[in-house]
Design a protein around this nucleic acid. Structure first.
Lengths: 186, 186
DNA sequence: TCAAAATACTACCGATCGGTCGTTTGTAAA
DNA sequence: TTTACAAACGACCGATCGGTAGTATTTTGA
């Protein structure tokens, strides 16, 4: 007895990753964690309520990976580590939870939609904060946005062609972009 | 009377774009084109069968836009036009059909999965063909793949933040990447 | 002109969807 | 040992899912 909230969220994360928001079912999720559907609804009032918590866990995991042991390191190292944290599980698991949810939520699920927006906004701001010390904040915003797009886009090649090298290239290229932006600003 | 196959495919394309594979329903699709569901099944034997035709239309549309009036133009112009054709409807419509389908299909829909693969492979090969005259085919493959990833990734920013400028930056940056690859090879 | 082929219809199928009902079980404080 | 409450349960809801059987209507070609 007693399935933890964390276990539910972790399983929901896998379901969303594999099947997207529409494709994931509460019955399936309940089965995976060894609960009956009615019991699952005890813990989460509806399907949409899973989304913010899944993204919150994913965000914390990503940010903690990004910040692990980077104190005092030069900005290039810290930035690349952050990119790699975002790229993280994407290449292994073949699909990106965030992107799958970004496409899956709509105006019919406003809470989920806002959660997705906050998730990516926080990621973006994290990257911007790493770049701001070495370039103007306007430029940092563009470089960070493009890095995010590049990494998320690489998940397409991973998903469709199993091309994991594309993800590594996206990380490296994004780091070089940041370097170039610093050079140009001088 | 008599709804054309093209009208069905066009409507299916919109549904897949907006709701993804799992989220789109045959009943909804039938309603939009003014048919009863059973009549829709007369024309397409199942939901999965819609996918290859939707992608085929999208592919032809993209390639014809890419090739329109580019005979004799320098490769940079032709390449950028192709990138812009791919980027095309993405920015307006907020979501990319190809990417939404790429994430939505699974091993349970093998025909659809293969169609998605073929779609992106053909797009990629088209870009590679444009770059091959001016760089090694290995390098062309990498540059083209990264351009595709970049543009598809930009759809995330368009979808989540309504950041259409990100798409334009992705196109411009991809063209510059190709230029740089040519310079480096000399 | 007339029959066959194509197209569309009504009506229905079993399965599953998200979600809720009333009830029982386990656990921990009083 | 009683009490109280979260957690889990079986059974069920109306709606919708993808898909099909049988029939009517339109288009077409000989």
């Amino acid at each position: 007895m007693k399935v933890t909230r964390g276990e539910i969220v972790a399983a929901a994360r896998e379901q969303f990753r594999e099947k997207g928001y529409a494709g994931a079912s509460m019955q399936d999720l309940a089965d995976r964690i060894g609960l009956k559907k009615a019991s699952l609804y005890m813990r989460f009032s509806n399907k949409e309520a899973l989304v913010p918590e899944v993204l919150e866990v994913l965000l914390q995991e990503t940010l903690s990976q990004a910040e692990a042991g980077t104190s005092g390191a030069p900005w290039q190292i810290t930035y690349e580590k952050a990119l790699r944290a975002i790229a993280g599980n994407l290449a292994e698991r073949k699909r990106c939870v965030g992107l799958h949810l970004a496409y899956g939520v709509s105006d019919e699920t406003p809470a989920a939609k806002e959660a997705v927006r906050n998730f990516f906004q926080t990621l973006r701001e994290h990257l911007i904060a790493l770049l701001s010390p070495v370039m103007s904040s306007d430029r940092a915003a563009l470089v960070a946005s493009d890095a995010l797009a590049r990494i998320e886009g690489a998940t397409l090649l991973v998903a469709v062609f199993d091309d994991k090298a594309a993800m590594e290239r996206a990380v490296q290229a994004s780091r070089r972009d940041a370097d170039a932006a610093v050079q140009k600003a001088r």
